[in-house]
Deep mutational scan, measured.
Amino acid sequence: VTLFVALYDYEARTEDDLSAHKGEKFQILNSSEGDWWEARSLTTGETGYIPSNYVAPV
Score class of each variant (00 low, 15 high):
Lys25Arg: 12
Trp37Ile: 08
Asp35Met: 11
Asn53Asp: 10
Leu7Phe: 03
Pro57Cys: 08
Gly45Ser: 05
Arg13Asp: 07
Thr43Gln: 09
Ala56Trp: 09
Thr47Val: 14
Trp37Pro: 01
Leu3Cys: 15
Ser19Asn: 10
Ile50Thr: 02
Thr14Met: 10
Ser31His: 11
Val55Ile: 13
Ser31Asn: 12
Thr14His: 14
Ala39Val: 15
Arg40His: 04
Gly48Leu: 04
His21Gly: 05
Gly45Cys: 11
Val5Lys: 03
Ala56Lys: 09
Gly48Cys: 06
Gln27Ser: 07
Ser19Val: 06
Arg40Ala: 04
Val5Gln: 07
Asp17Lys: 13
Val1Pro: 13
Asp17Trp: 09
Ala12His: 03
Leu42Asp: 03
Ser52Glu: 03
Ser31Trp: 13
Glu24Gln: 05
Thr44Pro: 01
Leu7Lys: 03
Ser32Tyr: 10
Tyr8Arg: 07
His21Pro: 01
Phe4Tyr: 15
Trp36Gly: 03
Ser52Met: 09
Leu18Lys: 01
Thr14Arg: 14
Ala56Gln: 09
Glu11Ile: 13
Thr44Cys: 02
Glu15Met: 11
Val58Ala: 09
Ala56Gly: 09
Lys25Pro: 05
Leu7Asn: 02
Asp35Ile: 10
Leu7Gly: 02
Tyr49Met: 13
Leu29Ala: 05
Glu33His: 14
Val58Asp: 08
Asn30Met: 07
Pro51Cys: 12
Ala20Gly: 03
Asp9Ser: 06
Ala20Ile: 15
Lys22Gln: 08
Leu18Ser: 01
Ala12Met: 04
Glu46Leu: 14
Thr44Trp: 01
Val58Tyr: 11
Arg13Met: 12
Ala6Glu: 05
Glu33Tyr: 11
Glu15His: 11
Leu29Thr: 05
Asp16Thr: 14
Asp17Thr: 13
Arg40Trp: 05
His21Lys: 15
Ile50Gly: 00
Ala20Pro: 02
Gln27Phe: 14
Trp37Ser: 02
Asn53Trp: 15
Leu29Gln: 04
Ile50Glu: 01
Ala6Met: 09
Asp35Glu: 12
Leu7Asp: 03
Ile50Arg: 00
Phe26Cys: 03
Ser41Ala: 04
Leu3Ile: 15
Ser19Leu: 03
Ser32Arg: 11
Glu38Asn: 07
Ala56Ser: 09
Tyr49Cys: 13
Leu7Tyr: 03
Arg13Pro: 08
Ile50Leu: 12
Tyr8Asp: 08
Trp37Leu: 10
Tyr49Val: 06
Ser52Cys: 14
Ala39Gln: 00
His21Cys: 13
Val5Tyr: 13
Asp9Gly: 02
Val5Asp: 04
Gln27Val: 15
Tyr54Asp: 02
Glu11Tyr: 09
Phe26Asn: 01
Leu3Tyr: 13
Glu24Tyr: 03
Asp35Gln: 09
Asp16Leu: 14
Glu46Tyr: 08
Glu38Arg: 12
Gly48Trp: 05
His21Phe: 14
Asp16Glu: 12
Gly48Phe: 05
Thr14Cys: 15
Tyr49Ala: 04
Tyr10Ala: 02
Tyr49Asn: 07
Val1Gly: 14
Lys25Ser: 06
Glu11Ala: 09
Ala6Arg: 00
Leu42Phe: 05
Leu29Cys: 07
Asn30Asp: 11
Leu3Thr: 09
Thr14Gln: 09
Phe4Thr: 05
Glu24Asn: 01
His21Glu: 08
Gly34Ile: 10
Pro57Lys: 07
Thr47His: 07
Ala6Pro: 05
Ser31Ala: 13
Glu38Tyr: 15
Ile50Tyr: 02
Ile28His: 01
Gly23Met: 02
Thr47Asn: 05
Thr43Val: 11
Tyr49Trp: 14
Val5Ala: 04
Thr2Phe: 11
Arg13Tyr: 07
Val5Met: 08
Trp36His: 08
Thr44Ser: 10
Trp36Ser: 07
Asp16Pro: 03
Arg40Asp: 00
Glu38Pro: 06
Pro51Trp: 08
Leu7Met: 08
Gly48Ala: 00
Tyr54Lys: 08
Asp9Trp: 05
Val1Ser: 13
Val5Cys: 11
Glu46Phe: 10
Glu38Trp: 15
Arg13Thr: 12
Gly45Tyr: 06
His21Met: 11
Asp17Phe: 14
Leu29Glu: 04
Ile50Ala: 01
Tyr54Phe: 12
Leu18Phe: 05
Pro57Ile: 08
Leu3Phe: 11
Val5Thr: 04
Lys25Ile: 15
Glu33Cys: 15
Glu15Trp: 09
Pro57Arg: 07
Leu3Arg: 04
Ser32Trp: 10
Lys25Asp: 01
Phe26Ala: 00
Ser32Ile: 10
Ala12Ile: 03
Gly48Glu: 00
Val1Asn: 14
Gly48Tyr: 05
Arg13Gln: 14
Ile50Asn: 00
Gly34Glu: 12
Leu7Pro: 02
Glu33Phe: 12
Tyr8Leu: 09
Glu15Tyr: 09
Thr47Cys: 09
Val5Leu: 05
Tyr10Asn: 00
Asp17Val: 12
Ala6Ile: 06
Ala56Thr: 11
Thr2Tyr: 11
Gly23Trp: 05
Ile28Ser: 00
Glu15Thr: 12
Tyr10Gln: 00
Asp16Ala: 14
Glu24Asp: 10
Glu15Ala: 13
Ser31Val: 11
Thr43Trp: 13
Arg40Leu: 10
Val55Thr: 02
Leu3Trp: 10
Phe26Pro: 00
Asn30Trp: 07
Ser32Thr: 12
Glu46Ile: 10
Asn30Phe: 07
Arg40Lys: 12
Gly23Thr: 01
Tyr49Ile: 08
Arg13Phe: 08
Asp17Gly: 15
Ser32Ala: 11
Glu46Asp: 08
Tyr49Thr: 06
Leu42His: 04
Ala56Tyr: 09
Tyr10Val: 06
Thr43Cys: 14
Val55Leu: 15
Pro57Leu: 08
Ile50Phe: 03
Tyr10Phe: 15
Ser31Tyr: 12
Ser31Arg: 13
His21Tyr: 13
Arg40Phe: 07
Thr44Glu: 01
Trp36Met: 15
Gly48Gln: 00
Gly23His: 03
Glu33Ile: 11
Gln27Tyr: 14
Ala56Cys: 11
Ala12Glu: 02
Asp9Val: 04
Ser52Trp: 10
Lys22Asn: 04
Phe4Trp: 14
Pro57Met: 09
Ser31Phe: 15
Gly34Val: 11
Asp35Thr: 09
Leu42Asn: 03
Gly45Met: 06
Ile28Lys: 02
Leu18Cys: 05
Gly45Val: 01
Tyr54Cys: 15
Glu33Ala: 13
